[in-house]
Amino acid sequence: MELRHLVSFLAIADELHFGRAAARLHLAQPSLSQHLQRLERSVGVTLVARNSHEVRLTPAGQAFRSLAKDIVARAELAGQVARAAAAGRSGTVRVGYNFPAGQRILPATLAALNSRHPAIDVTMFEMRTGPQLAALAGGRIDVAMVYGRPTAANLDSRLLLRVPLVAVVGQEHRWAGLDRVPFGALDGEACVLFNRAQSSAMYDTIFSAAKTSGIRLDVAEEVDDPGATAILAAIKPVVGFASALRGRLTDIRATGPRTTTVGLIDPVPILDLHVVWPTDHGPLVDAFLECLPDRAEE
């Protein structure tokens, strides 16, 4: 049983017309007929019935068709994998990402990568910006998706997404139920923040908005885990900060004390989400970058 005979059979099965099937494969019609005859001899049954009026698959041909499709598809995949290996596009790319990237960027990217480069695997690590950049510098990941644009000379980057920040408060907080508040309303409010090393861009964006509003933030708690921020905001009269995407999921927690998000305006604190990679990189990173979607708005 030869692969070309399977390809010819599938063309006949699709077209149910020998002339169209031959033209599709750029074959002479007698050659196509010979392929079918040799395949049927190999299988030992008639796969295609034809007369002067019609061409149809026999019950055996119908049963054979789906498996033949699978064989041809796997043969094509084997060729893609071999070519990818020869081009250096076979292996694993290690990707760091934060929450908005995981929600808005990675799903489409991984689907495209799997379709275009099936020989490439992806290992993913969800981290805040600071740990991602440290892992990138240490060679523990190949690509980072972080807030802010790193200035290091050995890194390249591209803007992917603009992400607004929101306030996170408990349902008993006086802001609960409000659609938005001016950033200046944080004056006198106890806040939950994180160590700047965890995400310098997010930290600086928050303090820059406070400066623009002419207020001084009262940092009552410092936790580095976003989940812990939501828990504290749910049980204490404090205000946390989150991306709008994470905040929306925080709003629908099913049990226990709940939080809600409130938009911040005048100014709206905005974070730029960038994909970052080493200037000196290989074909695996190139393949991943080619599959990233165009810049999107939050």
Rank of each mutant, 00 (worst) to 15 (best):
A23V: 10
L39R: 00
P30A: 10
L36P: 01
R41V: 09
R38F: 02
S52H: 14
H17E: 12
R38V: 05
L27R: 14
S42V: 04
Q29I: 14
R41P: 03
P30Y: 09
L36S: 04
L47W: 02
A23D: 13
V45S: 13
R20L: 10
E54L: 12
P30S: 07
A49Q: 06
S42L: 03
L25T: 00
R38L: 13
L47G: 04
H26S: 14
E40N: 10
A49N: 11
L32D: 02
T46V: 15
A23K: 12
V48I: 15
V43C: 06
G44D: 04
R20Q: 09
S42P: 04
H17C: 10
P30G: 09
A21Y: 04
N51L: 05
S31W: 05
R24I: 09
G44C: 07
Q29M: 12
G19P: 02
L36K: 08
E54H: 15
P30M: 13
Q37W: 03
G44M: 04
L25P: 03
L32V: 07
N51C: 06
F18G: 06
G19L: 10
E40P: 05
S52F: 10
S33V: 07
L27P: 00
H35W: 03
R20K: 15
L36T: 02
E40Y: 06
E54Q: 15
G19Y: 08
S52D: 12
G19A: 13
E40S: 11
